[in-house]
């Protein structure tokens, strides 16, 4: 029981990271109807920037700086590679973001070098002891940070002028344009937000560990998350992220009892959950059912 509760705590920490990543995907999808495969590259870029800044700026300073710079990078990518493709089929744009991802990651990998880059965050692997249950500090910090960010995002979409514009544009681009919403600005803000979210998520994913060339695979777990929650649902991204995080850690806990599945089965558990959910609900848990005309 203690083990299970500890796994749940770890799962919530991990799930918060996935939720932040998934929010980035969903924000881009809602604005542009495109799944951006460039998110892994942004995540890696932001995380590597933090490892370079952390010596001079401290952890939070480095995080803010890296988030801002990654948002700028995402803005540039959107302007250069994605904006020319407005009106093209979503799949084509998705493949373009895949190309962006490959190109950006090569440059970032150059900055990682042949070794791993240690994170040197303030928490490391230190842990609290709550009534006999060991909870790692980094998981608490990421959960709280994610909660604050999610609350701020929802408030932004609900109350700010830009948030309203973004909701309008995601509902009907042409109608929004006719009402004076700058759809271009909506695209830019969406990409910048997604880039920033990826940087934050990546930094916390690497907290207590180090950054290496394979870290981008973490960001791909956000794909089963958004499918699980529904491609166009912000709440779905958060709930899906937490579910996938918990499933991941619980599978990791019990996989020694199921040796026939092979080691590291937790790594593919998100994809299995995704397949099972899609068999029952083809549009995810909270996704809007597509209405199609011939």
């Amino acid at each position: 029981m203690v083990e299970l509760l500890e796994a749940l705590a770890r799962g919530l920490g991990r799930g918060s990271i996935y939720a932040l990543l998934a929010l980035g995907f969903v924000i881009i999808f809602k604005a542009t109807r495109v799944v951006s495969f460039a998110q892994p590259a942004f995540m890696l870029a932001g995380t590597v920037m933090v490892t370079y800044f952390i010596g001079t700026l401290g952890f939070w300073g480095a995080l803010v700086a890296a988030t801002a710079l990654t948002a700028l990078l995402a803005l540039g990518v959107e302007r250069a590679a994605v904006r020319p493709m407005v009106g093209k089929p979503p799949f084509v744009v998705a493949i373009i973001t895949l190309g962006v991802d490959v190109a950006v990651r090569v440059v970032v990998n150059g900055y990682i070098g042949n070794d791993v880059r240690p994170m040197h965050d303030p928490w490391g692997l230190k842990a609290f002891d709550i009534g006999g249950i060991t909870v790692q500090q980094r998981h608490v910090v990421i959960f709280v940070t994610a909660a604050i960010i999610v609350a701020a995002l929802f408030a932004f979409f609900r109350y700010s002028r830009m948030g309203l514009a973004m909701r309008a544009a995601s509902y009907d681009q042409e109608a929004a344009l006719a009402q004076g919403v700058s759809v271009g600005a909506v695209f830019a803000v969406s990409w910048a937000m997604a880039g920033g979210l990826a940087a934050v998520a990546g930094t916390f994913a690497a907290a207590g560990e180090s950054v290496d060339h394979l870290m981008w695979l973490t960001a791909l777990v956000a794909l089963p998350v958004i499918i699980l929650g529904g491609l166009d649902s912000l709440a779905g991204a958060v709930v899906g992220g937490l579910i996938v995080g918990i499933v991941f850690e619980v599978t990791a806990l019990y996989q020694k009892d199921m040796p026939w599945l092979g080691g590291n089965v937790s790594v593919i558990s998100p994809y299995v959950v995704m397949l099972l959910v899609l068999l029952v609900r083809p549009y995810g848990l909270f996704g809007t059912r597509e209405v199609e005309r011939v």
């Binding site: 799944v35 979503p90 799949f91 998705a94 794909l223 089963p224 958004i226 499918i227 491609l231 995704m274 397949l275 899609l278 083809p282 549009y283 597509e290």
Partner: peptide, 8 residues
């Protein structure tokens, strides 16, 4: 369809 299929 479409993106859902690609991701699956």
């Amino acid at each position: 369809r479409g993106l859902y299929l690609a991701l699956v």
